[in-house]
Design a protein around this nucleic acid. Structure first.
Lengths: 143, 143
DNA sequence: TTACAAGTTCGAGCGCACTCTAAGTCAAGG
DNA sequence: CCTTGACTTAGAGTGCGCTCGAACTTGTAA
């Protein structure tokens, strides 16, 4: 498989694939004939997993740590497990936060539906700013 | 309340507060005496809400759209509701993705605990890269 | 009243994760 | 052979969301 095929299959751009190789997230691909990278299907599994880590917000720095451990082979299993468990904890925490925010969002939206107090509270500050604009203290908002 | 107090109460830096005002996320604060910004407690509600939007991944561009509607007062309620509902949908989708990834993570971690096939699949590509490094085709990973 | 902490503006700089450009090489179909 | 499109490298550029620095003014407690 050449880089273009891999790009099509993974949804990454060829630029991104080369970038990932450069920084060490992807293993150095064998250059089959001439200079061109040749991939076998096993890389898809790793890229998919990288995608999961990305979706869950792991920074490249940490993915790199994981990738380096993976490079070093089976004796790093324990370290990798720990890394993943720490990440899992952060993801769980983040999901909980999101759910809390979602609840607030629901309340807010419900407030808009029934047009109640929420509006009045919200617009108090707005009125102060409008006054400032009238008085030339504030510029109208740009774009 | 002065900017430093507000910073302490919200966890934002004074730099960030001024930045938010500059781009229009925060209303232009009245300069009580001289040049210095004076805030009243109502701003805390807005900043907290901005924090929720941030936590849920809303880009500044969209927070700005919301803020501009808010500026324009009560007649924009409907637009604001729509904006928030769209955002809510995206957040829900994102939570679902995270949960799916979490399941994969769990499987992976379980695999490390029991050291099974997972390892062997994972390390196949690693071996290819090691070979490349030995042959001087790839640099060892930096940092 | 003097010291110094906290405020001001403007603009530059930073970290992240790509994304793109330029200038060139290579491979496969007609 | 020739064209065309995919590939190569090194390095510069982008967009986001802050973050910081410089140079200066203002507020407050001893």
């Amino acid at each position: 498989m050449k880089i273009g095929d891999l790009a099509r299959r993974t949804g990454l751009s060829t630029h991104t694939i080369r970038y990932y190789e450069r920084i060490g997230l992807l293993p150095y691909a064998s250059r089959a004939s001439s200079q061109q990278r040749e991939y076998d299907a096993s890389i898809l599994v790793w890229i998919e997993f990288l995608g999961r880590l990305k979706t869950t917000g792991m920074p490249i720095r940490d993915k790199l740590r994981y990738a380096r451990l993976r490079e070093r082979g089976p004796e790093t299993q324990e370290d990798r497990r720990i890394l993943l468990e720490e990440h899992r904890t952060r993801v769980r925490t983040h999901i909980a936060e999101l759910q809390a925010c979602l609840a607030v969002l629901d309340t807010k939206i419900a407030g808009y539906a029934g047009s109640d107090m929420v509006e009045k509270i919200d617009d108090a500050a707005t009125e102060r700013r409008k006054r400032a604009v009238r008085e030339g203290l504030a510029r109208p908002l740009r774009d």
